[in-house]
């Protein structure tokens, strides 16, 4: 699957970090992901209960600016999160694919940003079973996840220094994100405009064909005995 065309070609700090991560095999991440799931299960069991309306879903979460994708199996008894390298094929039976820039996905997970707003602005896409995707979004939004707080709670006495370090990192990341946004606009905007013109021309053509189709169908019906 190579659906890499996205409306806002992401050139975020995460992307830059992504290049650095490229040689990192997903297997190395697995212990951290396992820990994250156990933490989520302990601190936010409601997430999994809220997903009970969907029958055994399997989500593919695709941060478009990372060379990695994640498979989430929110089984209430044993939730699992695993990482896939970009070229690894996803497992069978994916219910829905959620795509967006990593920072947006983190904001969404922490309830800092409204999923619909992300969607309306085309930063977030849901493919496959939209109902399952919406359920996941609602469940996560209802959980009041706070990654920093959740991780810190697991750290115990090391909390305070860690909190300071994370705070600094968060601020740096924000500033970096703003700078990169400016750069992205300069590099990408002209290319986007061209694609735009082509798309409009294509749409006009399609409307014409659709109109012809209808006229033809009418005639066919009228001549049917």
């Amino acid at each position: 699957m190579s659906n890499t065309s996205h409306t806002t070609p992401p050139l975020t700090p995460v992307l830059i970090a992504g290049f650095a991560m490229r040689p990192l095999p997903p297997a190395l991440l697995q212990p951290f992901l396992g820990l994250a799931m156990r933490l989520l299960q302990r601190r936010h069991p409601g997430v999994f209960e809220r997903l009970s309306s969907v029958d055994a879903p399997l989500f593919l979460v695709d941060p478009v600016d990372l060379p990695l994708r994640f498979v989430l199996d929110p089984d209430p008894a044993m939730p699992r999160l695993s990482a896939l390298a970009e070229d690894d094929p996803p497992p069978e039976g994916i219910t829905a694919i959620i795509r967006g820039p990593l920072l947006a996905l983190i904001d969404l997970m922490e309830g800092r940003i409204d999923g619909d707003a992300l969607f309306f602005s085309r930063q977030l896409t849901i493919e496959g079973d939209t109902g399952a995707g919406v359920a996941l979004r609602n469940a996560v939004d209802g959980a009041e996840i706070d990654l920093v707080e959740d991780v810190l709670s697991a750290l115990g006495p090391a909390r305070a220094p860690a909190r300071r370090a994370l705070g600094v990192a968060g601020g740096l990341l924000d500033r970096f994100a703003r700078d990169m946004e400016t750069l992205r606009g300069a590099v990408v905007a002209p290319a986007m405009q061209k694609a735009e013109t082509q798309a409009a021309a294509l749409r006009r053509l399609e409307e014409k064909v659709a109109g012809l189709d209808k006229a033809q169908r009418r005639q066919r019906r009228a001549s049917t005995p």
Partner: peptide, 15 residues
């Protein structure tokens, strides 16, 4: 218009 009956299809740069 329930989400269960909604499908988004990406066709090139169009949704």
């Amino acid at each position: 218009s329930p989400a269960s009956h909604v499908r988004y299809v990406e066709e090139g740069d169009r949704l």
